[in-house]
């Protein structure tokens, strides 16, 4: 039940897209399905995180309250104690550890129920590992977002949030309101991967994944204005996961 801790940095140094997801974290995964559990634990360890995998809800709650974790990944349906009850109990005990909720296919109300219960984010199975990884990273870093900044910077690009102006190499870039919002979102999370679904939720408040890859088309519009006229590429594609602006 208790998985050996894997702290090799090999995966990080290998240059795989997942290495750039951020700091090493201590993560508890409560998941009864062995295949899904292994998939998550294996992937997160590859990225260098410390992962504890627990298949039972009651054991998971005990572990979550006794050890200090950076992020909890909790399946909704669990033997012993279901995911919702775990989150409610934790929040009731003033435990504020970020929680990523996992749920099975087909749940329409699950998302809202999960968030209402006190989970911070939500993911439907099956998911690409990049999606989980990006969301776990976003959760762990959540409090570090600086909202009071008036200018955002990445490389030679500057975004003035008050005058709503974007310049690169002293050249002003004319952006549509949503392009501005998209760039702002990526700049605020500089160095972190943002997946398509994360961008849809944050920029357009859309919580389902349309079949057409609409985010890609918006990113390519943004790139045409922000990257194409200049020498270096600021907005990077992270294969199998999403997009990121280098810090």
């Amino acid at each position: 039940m208790h998985q050996p801790i894997n702290k090799t940095k090999a995966a990080l140094e290998k240059g795989s897209p997942a290495t750039a997801f951020g700091d090493v974290m201590k993560i508890l995964v409560i998941e009864d399905d062995a295949t899904t559990g292994d998939y998550i634990a294996h992937g997160l360890r590859e990225e260098g995180h410390t992962v504890d995998l627990v298949p039972d809800g009651r054991d998971g709650l005990i572990r979550a309250t006794t050890a200090d974790y950076d992020v909890l990944v909790i399946d909704r349906m669990l033997p012993g104690l279901d995911g919702m009850s775990i989150v409610k109990t934790l929040r009731g005990a003033k435990n504020r550890t970020p929680v990523l909720f996992l749920t099975s296919l087909g749940g329409v109300d699950d998302r809202i129920d999960g968030l209402n219960a006190g989970a911070d984010d939500y993911l439907v199975k099956p998911f690409a590992f990049g999606e989980l990884s990006a969301r776990v990273a976003a959760l762990a870093r959540r409090p570090k977002l600086k909202d009071e900044e008036t200018t955002l910077q990445a490389g030679d690009l500057t975004m003035d949030l008050i005058r709503r102006k974007v310049t690169r190499n002293d050249t002003e870039i004319d952006l549509l309101p949503r392009e501005f919002a998209l760039l702002e979102h990526l700049l605020r999370r500089k160095g972190r991967v943002q997946t398509r679904t994360m961008l849809l939720e944050a920029v357009w408040d859309i919580s389902f994944d349309p079949q057409t890859n609409v985010v890609e088309t918006h990113i390519s519009r943004l790139r045409a204005k922000v990257d194409k006229p200049f020498e270096s590429e600021l907005i990077k594609t992270v294969r199998g996961a999403g997009y990121r602006i280098e810090s």
Binding site: T35, T36, Y39, G43, S104, L105, K125, P126, A128, F129
Partner: peptide, 11 residues
């Protein structure tokens, strides 16, 4: 099973 297959294939 479909969820599992999808995850196994990704892995």
């Amino acid at each position: 099973p479909i969820q599992r297959v999808a995850m196994l294939l990704r892995q």
